[in-house]
Design a protein around this nucleic acid. Structure first.
Lengths: 339, 339
DNA sequence: CTGTTAGCGCTTTCAA
DNA sequence: TTGAAAGCGCTAACAG
């Protein structure tokens, strides 16, 4: 390995001068800089990151924590896309990203512990948010820089988080259905433990309420990716005297499952029932029918969370506590006029 | 930050003794160990990874390089799943994974350079394989430990890679179609620049040949995720005098697009045309019809590549050059008897 | 503008 | 079985 000393020797200066050239210190003459840089190039010198980190007490790395990978939800294209967003900004600041994909809550926790105790990273992005989460609590206690993508379960005004306005999105997309003449509108969501689900559902309810439409509990289903249990719930929904004519589904992936199930029962979309959902992953373009969905700008969700974290961890600034990424409705073919 | 010195002071021994306790050196008395460990616990000591790495000349981290994220292909659930596989084994050996998601080839290359020059990682897993790839060449030149998931474009007998037997998989799944009575079988694949596509296609061809079925060039389409261009190709395929009755599709995601397109043209699956594909991502269960597909065991692909890399980088062993992950066909509803 | 010196936190000879 | 001392590669006062 070629070190700073080798470069120093080769260019006839002291190690500290070389160090200053690396840092592009302004008090070094252009001439020396040139000379040193030449030597660096010739020797193929590259700074050793560990040595640098040791003295700088920074790692130039951030940790990204995925939700429990026991869950099929991890296969949601949401994640690659958010990683892409994070990647874009950390690339610019020459940071690297350390990814944690634990199976269980315990595993995740132990990885986070390693990250912070071992000074592996300067900060952490949490790609999930759970009620009374061990990891979140730990990070808070340690006063370690972190941001959450989504809504924190507690200390919302204290923890920096990057989120959509899911309430408003839910309201708007439901309103679209209402504007199209729908009155009997159902909601299909993932687990109510997730704030995304709740917020979107609350928005849905608010829209109904404002439109003077009465809510109906049997119009609401909560299911994980429509496996076994989901099927029965849908069956029940369809067998109602007056089944809904419109469906608000909390995630494109769930929509995919719904589409499949509805076809099984001979229900056509959008002729028999209209359907809208959220995320606008590329899949929603190639379903039949293509989905009318809320584009939540996943990439930006990732990019902004990385930006906020960097502000916090590196620049020691205090970013806004709540950063909202704008959404927009993408109109496609899964909605038809009613009545 | 609490350091080894603090622990030493607190437990009345020297820093080197503490270090030995951390390494669980056998020449330290149990008594001292107990004493030191107690102090570590009380003080909340955790070794600083950078300091350790600096002397150990190892980083306990591996780099994982994604394909260009400019590509929609990144949204393939294949990736989260493979990361999960990698994560499982590196968690066990207490390694961490540094993820690189570059937009362009240049960006990816510069990130890899940083990783190896800066000693960020002990080894690298390449999640893609391209002909004449800058990154691969660089890694080879530097003699840096790396493994490829998929098939290397060159030096196949030299570069450790973890792959499926895509040729055989292609042949087997095509044979399934043949056994079901199909004679006119088409192939829909992604870019031919990818070895997966080629291998699967070669297997498809071999199956036809063995069955004495003549190949037909107009039965073959290559397309990226069936966007604009793909549509015309499919239209062409369907308008043939004798359109295929069976389709071998090289990726579940492309199948999803195909399904959508076929419906548009009023072609029913499997009644009018049968369809099989590859990967068995969870999506293939919830399409209509559910796909008969080759399960390539993505998780294992990830896990084994991590294992091989660790053998190489850490244990300095020479793993097998070609590690084949077994596949199996999952029979679902997208194939029907013909004739 | 540049060199000398000390030190980041840890491991590892060498000595005792 | 333990301690003292040197050094990993780099940065940052301090001094000139």
């Amino acid at each position: 390995m070629v070190t700073i000393k080798d470069v120093a020797k080769a260019s006839g200066v002291s190690p500290s001068t070389v160090s200053r050239v690396i840092a592009n210190n302004s008090r070094i003459s252009e001439e020396t800089k040139k000379k040193v840089r030449k030597a660096m190039k010739e020797l193929g010198y590259h700074p050793n990151i560990n040595a640098r980190n040791l003295v700088a007490k920074s790692t130039k790395a951030i940790g990204v924590i995925m939700p429990s990978s026991a869950d099929k939800a991890l296969q949601n294209p949401f994640f690659p896309e958010i990683l892409r967003g994070i990647g874009s900004v950390i690339h610019d600041v020459e940071y690297s990203m350390s990814l944690s994909t634990g199976e269980t809550e315990e595993e995740i926790f132990s990885e986070v512990q390693r990250m912070v105790y071992g000074s592996y990273v300067d900060g952490v992005i949490l790609l999930y948010s759970r009620i009374n989460d061990k990891v979140t609590n730990f990070l808070r206690e340690q006063d370690f820089p972190f941001v959450i993508v989504g809504k924190p379960s507690d200390f919302e005004s204290e923890i920096t988080h990057v989120d959509n306005d899911n309430f408003r999105a839910g309201k708007e997309i439901t309103n679209h259905l209402i504007e199209m003449g729908h009155k009997r509108i159902g909601f299909i969501g993932g687990s109510r433990d997730l704030f995304v689900t709740r917020d979107r559902e609350d928005g849905y309810e608010a829209a109904l309420q404002e439109a003077g439409i009465e809510e109906c509990d049997s119009y609401k289903i909560h299911t994980e990716f429509l496996k076994a249990g989901g099927s029965e719930a849908v069956e029940h929904l369809l067998s109602l005297q007056t089944p809904p004519t419109g469906l608000v589904v909390s995630d494109d992936l769930i929509s995919l499952g719904m589409l499949s199930m509805l076809e099984k029962y001979g229900v056509r979309v959008p002729q028999d029932v209209s359907m809208v959902s959220f995320n606008n992953v590329y899949l929603s373009e190639i379903t039949r029918p293509a989905l009318t969905t809320v584009d939540i700008n996943i990439y930006e969700l990732g990019a902004q969370s990385a930006k906020a974290l960097i502000e916090k961890a590196i620049n020691k600034l205090e970013p806004a506590k709540r950063i909202i990424i704008p959404h927009r409705i993408v109109y496609r073919d899964s909605v038809s006029k009613e009545g």
